[in-house]
């Protein structure tokens, strides 16, 4: 892999540049999920905390949801944008464009892993012990990075070709976010909605993540099969679609 050093530099750049001009710099990566969770916890804990099944704590439940959803939503948009925004480079120097989308997915993954630290603290505070299945979080993170990179590659073609596709995708992502049990327990929904939420792939990733990290959900075998299928299919299809349409798309950069 001739471009491994470049991927390292790109991931590094994406992690450090966002907060370059701020005083605490990369500390924001730690603080961001904490603050978001704190606000949502304040707003929703009165309504939803008591509705969770016995033994599950709302604090870790909420923060796990926010971490994973940020990884997916932000990572996907950044990955899909990365190729268009590096068009200036890609039309002058030969670099496999996939490098940019993969780096964005990896930057999202790193952010996600950094966010596990404050999550562990929140678990400790709320009396929800970490589970022995903790190492599985690595697998879930990597699988989600596959999904992000695969979908990102597909969307990047769309983003270059059609200006408004970016807006449409961000609206779809917003809808998807509300169809993911991030801050509410699934049990408060009626059966139709529960069914829809069940088929939302992000729900499965999230269930497994909550379970693996601190035994804060009950995923089924279906969830495992489902996320492996989505991740692998997305990556394969994404690289295939990208390869197929890139030669005609690069001319539009």
């Amino acid at each position: 892999m001739k471009y491994l050093p470049l991927i390292r530099l790109l991931v590094n750049r994406e992690l450090t540049l966002r907060y370059k001009r701020s005083v605490i710099g990369i500390g924001w990566t730690l603080l961001n999920p904490v603050l978001t969770s704190a606000v949502l916890w304040y707003v929703f804990s009165f309504v939803f905390a008591s509705r969770l099944p016995n033994g599950q704590q709302f604090g870790p439940y909420l923060m796990a949801g926010i971490l994973l959803n940020t990884f997916f939503g932000q990572g996907l948009m950044q990955s899909a944008d990365s190729i268009a925004s590096n068009g200036g480079v890609l039309t002058k120097i030969y670099v496999p464009p996939q490098v940019f989308a993969i780096s964005s997915a990896l930057a999202g993954l790193t952010n996600f892993f950094i966010g596990l630290l404050p999550l562990a603290v929140v678990c400790y505070i709320s009396g929800q012990p970490l589970a022995w299945t903790l190492p599985l979080v690595l697998v879930i993170g990597v699988l989600l990075a596959f999904l992000v990179a695969g979908l990102g590659l597909t969307l990047s073609i769309l983003f270059i070709r059609f200006d408004d596709s970016r807006n449409i995708v961000s609206i779809l992502l917003l809808i998807l976010m509300y169809l993911t049990p991030i801050f509410y327990p699934v049990s408060i929904m009626n059966s139709t909605m529960q069914n829809i939420i069940h088929w939302n792939p992000i729900t499965s990733y999230l269930d497994i993540f909550r379970w693996a990290f601190s035994n804060n959900a009950t995923p089924t075998l279906f969830s495992w099969v489902y996320i492996f299928t989505w991740s692998i299919l997305a990556l394969l299809l994404g690289t295939y679609i990208f390869k197929k349409y890139w030669p005609r798309t690069v001319a539009m950069l």
Binding site: L6, L9, R13, L17, K20, R21, N86, G88, K92, I93
Partner: peptide, 22 residues
Amino acid sequence: GAGFHQEMTGAENVLFYSALMG
């Protein structure tokens, strides 16, 4: 200078630009 970034230092840009050229 394709790929130069305003917020990165001169040295970082040299490294990044060189990485782009493989």
